[in-house]
């Protein structure tokens, strides 16, 4: 599995991060070094091994379907870059 410059552009697009044209090859070189280290895993025999997604085998707790929180709309919107009438403002997406 080798990482190409096009892969870097594709994942930068998926991650919604601008990587400018001059920076792509530097980012690529560093990611290649990281993947060379990560690729050690491919040689490990994991046949029949159960994946471990979490430290504890706990069942997700359920709670009553009741409102328990207070309305903090105004507090949470005070920290937003742009709001109006209780709504978050973003550039127009529908003409």
């Amino acid at each position: 599995m080798t990482l190409t410059l096009d892969d870097v552009r594709r994942i930068a697009h998926l991650a919604r991060i601008d990587v400018d044209a001059q920076a792509v090859s530097d980012v690529h070189a560093k990611l290649e070094a990281i993947f060379a280290m990560i690729n050690e895993l491919q040689a490990v025999d994991t046949a029949g091994v159960e994946p471990m997604s979490h430290a504890q085998d706990v069942v997700l707790p359920l709670r009553e379907d009741k409102v328990t929180e207070t309305d903090r709309h105004a507090d949470f919107q005070r920290i937003a870059p742009a709001v109006e009438d209780g709504l978050y403002l973003v550039p127009r997406v529908v003409e």
Partner: peptide, 15 residues
């Protein structure tokens, strides 16, 4: 790539 990396890493995490 999910199986080759993420799932593989979770299995080695178990080991």
């Amino acid at each position: 790539y999910y199986d080759a990396y993420y799932l593989k890493a979770q299995k080695v995490r178990r080991l």
